[in-house]
Amino acid sequence: MDIPVDLLINAVVAGLLIGGFYASVTAGISISFGMLDIVNIAHPGFIILGSYIVYIINSTTGADPVVTAIVMLPVFYFLGMGIYLVYYAAFERRGQEALRGLAFFFGLLFITEVGLILAFGVDYRYVEARYIGPTWHIGFVDLPLRMLVPCVVSLLMVLGLQLFLMKSFIGRAIQAVAQDQLALQLLAANPTRIKRVAFGVSIATAALAGAFLIIIQPVEPSVGREYIGRAFAICVLGGMGSLPGAVIAAMLLGVVESFTATFYGPSWAPAVSFGFLLATLAVRPAGILGR
């Protein structure tokens, strides 16, 4: 097959742009699943919830989606803390997180999805912002601002998170929980309090990821399910708790999906992430940047 060079390069660029967005989807799961060992499969549900809140505020006041999401960060942070409190009291303390904890998050995912369907129906919703229409052209490379803005803000968010985890006291405490919870208890620190903060942060990222999602594409309540496989595949491929690894894996998945969509048709794209996940689990379960 003779592939035109400009098509190839555009496919790569589109993949990198969507990969930047995937990084924001995965960041929350990298924290909850990779560091805290909480298998929060409801994360995409919170992302869709974020999308709908952004949609409501944008359609009533016309506020910018990204700014709205930043204002919402504290709300999602406290939501996450609340969920962790329930999770801890009901499952973690009793040592039942494996079976019932998973069922709990699955139930939450289901409730958000069906709840949104009941409230808004299954119509696709979208937001309005100045940067959604135009596209920059650099040579033959197309840079739609609809993709570029979420990608850049998302990478900034992940960078901020990484700095927070590396430099701040509480961030380093979160990493300590990820490494050895028992040792932390022996040092008379309270891992539960740190995990509560960390889980709050991970749910807060869902607000921003939700805003990015609804900027990139129209959203309906069951879209979230497609992101479960993707986000966990990226998280595992990147090396569980590693944010830089997650960014690399997200870009990789984005490019491969973009190639699949360009050369085989978009209907095959969802299968790519599953292939990635299975291949990683079978070949290198520690991921690219795993310890």
Binding site: F33, V39, I41, A98, L102, R225, E226, I228, G229, F232, A233, V236, G265, S267, W268, P270, A271, S273, F274, G275, L277, L278, L281, P285
Partner: peptide, 22 residues
């Protein structure tokens, strides 16, 4: 670990659906 199996089954539903659609 058990959770990988759980996540893989979740993703499997999406992939089989993709296969059937195509």
């Amino acid at each position: 670990r058990g959770v990988f199996f759980a996540i893989a089954t979740l993703a499997m539903a999406v992939v089989l659906q993709t296969l059937v659609i195509n």
